[in-house]
């Protein structure tokens, strides 16, 4: 039997207690702005980055950089070319679980259907999916179990959902 999967998360919070991280079921919660950086346009840098944009040209250019680990679509708008580019370059397609926790149920259900579409195209083009909370406050964090359940509800199998939650570790946990 192989090693059990290790789960990771991404958040803006830098002061999460180690005991809480363990209780939530994660090996580590990476900090945005410290372990990885969100960028709006491609930049030549040594630090690990995630491109967050709706411009297909900027995304394609950033994904060719070795230090860019993946793409996060703004407003979860589907860009087929960008997903295909991510699949070709072995980069991650990030999905933010915070978008499913909006106060407005109309926005939440719209985000859900958009994320479902992105997942379907990522599967079609062979791009690896990564799910993370991108939490800005403690209340936005979820346990690994809950993140997997949310992934399942969005249309992936439980194995794919577990793999999506552990995908970040390959790029950031060295």
């Amino acid at each position: 039997m192989g090693d059990p999967l290790k789960y990771y998360d991404l958040s803006y919070l830098s002061n999460i207690e180690e005991s809480l991280v363990t209780r939530l079921g994660y090996k580590k919660i990476f900090v945005i702005g410290k372990d990885v950086h969100l960028i709006n346009q491609p930049e030549p840098s040594e630090r690990k980055t995630i491109i967050r944009s709706n411009d297909p040209k900027k995304i394609a250019s950033a994904l060719r950089n070795n230090n860019t680990i993946g793409v996060l679509f703004e407003d979860n708008l589907l860009l087929k070319k960008a997903i295909e580019e991510a699949g070709n370059n072995d980069k991650l397609v990030f999905l933010s679980l915070s978008d499913l926790m909006d106060k407005d149920p109309v926005r939440t259900s719209r985000n859900m259907s958009r994320i479902r579409t992105i997942m379907a195209f990522a599967r079609k083009f062979g791009a690896e999916i990564a799910i993370a909370t991108f939490a800005t406050r403690q209340a936005d964090l979820t346990s690994a179990m809950q993140a997997i359940a949310l992934g399942e509800l969005l249309g992936v199998s439980i194995d794919e959902s577990r793999k999506a939650l552990s995908a970040i570790g390959e790029y950031l946990d060295n």
Binding site: G25, T108, D140, S143, M145, Q146, L150
Partner: peptide
Amino acid sequence: FEREVLAALATIKKSGGVESGFYTLKI
């Protein structure tokens, strides 16, 4: 119905007028 309730709890961010998240630790 574990999957549905887990997901529902993840989306609740307020309780008793106070901002709070609900983490499901074990079933």
